[in-house]
């Protein structure tokens, strides 16, 4: 079982205060962390490997500091890492990001399972999973709670309006996980030591290695400018009979009938 996990690195939101009135983001502590949903994906990958054998490759894309997040995944038990170092910021464009990641997955060799988070906190990066699946022509299992592989099929559980549902797809497959799908393990001291001892554990590539013509890495869009939600207003009071209120709640929470 060869598993590839695509990860993103984000600015730690707990070191950040957003002041809606002042229309400003205050960064008190500039620390970068592994995107929480991707951390779930790493844990899910390790669980699949522990059950079915095989190895886990972590693929990260970003400025050089992304290597530290890959190392974090290695300290949790992943087998090797592949970093695509992009200092240009072109990979902020979801299409570019997906193309480079798909190229990296191909480069990493044959695989059975690609996992990633179903959202990226600092961007609208939830697109990456389906986009990569499209590029690699894989079936996709989006926002699943668990993944298990047996023989040539992947089985997953996803949450629907009417309860949990079991879905399956033939391997190879791409699945995405929400940030609260599991309890990611911590790295261990010994593995951290080993990660730094073995400098070859993380291979580094540049976008040009994956896309020599530069065609795939030219962005179509640009992000810039910031907006803020209006400062929290006093909420709406829901009026009506208990039945009416309950009806709205059922719809809002997506509880179904």
């Amino acid at each position: 079982m060869r598993i590839i996990v695509l990860i993103n690195q984000i600015l730690d939101p707990s070191g950040m205060t957003v002041n809606r009135r002042a229309q400003q983001v205050f960064v008190n502590r500039r620390e970068y962390i592994l995107n929480p949903a991707d951390l779930s994906a790493v844990e899910a990958a390790l669980q699949v490997r522990d059950a079915a054998g095989g190895d886990v490759t972590i693929v990260g894309l970003g400025p050089e500091r992304v290597v530290e997040s890959i190392r974090q995944a290695l300290s949790m038990g992943a087998d090797q890492g592949l970093a695509i170092i992009d200092e240009s910021g072109a990979a902020a464009d979801p299409a570019v990001r997906a193309r480079l990641l798909a190229a990296a997955v191909r480069k990493a060799g044959p695989f059975d399972l690609v996992l990633t988070g179903d959202r990226v906190l600092d961007s609208d990066g939830g697109q990456i999973g389906p986009r990569v699946a499209e590029l690699l022509d894989l079936p996709q299992l989006i926002s699943v709670e668990t993944v298990a592989c047996q023989e040539n099929r992947a089985e997953a559980i996803r949450s629907t309006e009417t309860g949990y549902q079991r879905v399956e797809a033939p391997l190879p497959v791409l699945a995405t996980l929400p940030p609260d799908a599991n309890r990611p393990r911590f790295g261990t001291a010994q593995r951290i030591v080993n990660v730094y001892r073995d400098q070859s554990a993380v291979k580094c590539l540049s976008p040009a290695d994956l896309d020599p013509t530069g065609e795939a890495s030219s962005p179509q869009t640009r992000s810039g400018g910031r907006g803020y939600p209006t400062p929290r207003e006093p909420g709406t009071r829901l009026e009506g009979t208990v039945e009416e209120i309950t009806g709205r709640l059922v719809t809002a929470l997506g509880l179904g009938a």
């Binding site: 906190l121 961007s123 609208d124 803020y228 939600p229």
Partner: peptide, 18 residues
């Protein structure tokens, strides 16, 4: 477009380059 980041803590704008 403005899109929500960090769970809607704030928004970023996106425009097309072409």
């Amino acid at each position: 477009a403005d899109y929500a980041v960090y769970n809607g803590e704030f928004y970023e704008s996106r425009s097309i380059l072409a």
